[in-house]
Structures are given as structure tokens and as C-alpha cells.
């Protein structure tokens, strides 16, 4: 699968099927889009509280749990003050 190749060693945003969001560095992937993410941090969104970042470390995520992987513009991400952001979490996928 050629489509994830360009994201290797880049900081990415991973959105899981249940709506959770994790930022990390993409270290590897395979045919089934299983991925290895290093320096993971979960970003927990809430309407009532600022965004909370929870360090998770090194993760292997199964491809079938993935909703989306996005390449982060690091400069733009650093410019955002997460403590000012209030939002509902991303809705989970419903089949």
C-alpha cells in the first residue's frame, strides 16, 4: 500500500474508529495498515474542559481500528494553544 509511505518519520494525527485522537510519529506500517506510532500522546477533547494531553509512549495500532491518519503541520500545531480549545470528541464510527 503506497498511500502511507509519505508519512514515515512525520508527526501525524491518528483518529481511531471510536473517535479518540492520538498524535505521534509514524515509525512503520504494513499491508493491512497496522501502524507503529512513537512518542504518542492522546488528546482528549471536551466541551467543558481544555484539551488534555496524556503521554502514551510507543503504540502498535491495528489497521482495522483506524479511521484516519493526517500529516500535522508542526508550525501550525505549535501555534495553537490547546488550553483554549473546547470541542466535543470526534463521533465514533457507526456501521
Amino acid at each position: 500500500m503506497s498511500t502511507l509511505q509519505g508519512y514515515i518519520d512525520r508527526r501525524v494525527l491518528l483518529v481511531l474508529q471510536d473517535g479518540r485522537t492520538i498524535v505521534g510519529v509514524l515509525s512503520g506500517f504494513d499491508q493491512r495498515s497496522d501502524i507503529i506510532l512513537s512518542q504518542c500522546k492522546e488528546r482528549i477533547y471536551s466541551m467543558d474542559d481544555p484539551v488534555e494531553e496524556v503521554p502514551l509512549g510507543l503504540y502498535l495500532v491495528k489497521g482495522d481500528q483506524i479511521l484516519l491518519i493526517g500529516e500535522m503541520d508542526e508550525a501550525q500545531d505549535n501555534a495553537v494553544d490547546l488550553s483554549t480549545i473546547r470541542a466535543d470528541p470526534i463521533a465514533p464510527i457507526r456501521y
Partner: peptide, 18 residues
């Protein structure tokens, strides 16, 4: 406005199954 989660994302990979 309701989805600031992807503010800093310029391009993405979307899993076909979703």
C-alpha cells in the same frame, strides 16, 4: 468550528472501511 481536532492537518489517509 465544531471540529478543531484537524486544524493542523493538511493532508490525510482515510481508511476505506469508514
Amino acid at each position: 468550528a465544531r471540529h478543531p481536532h484537524m486544524m493542523a492537518v493538511k493532508n490525510c489517509f482515510i481508511r476505506g472501511s469508514v
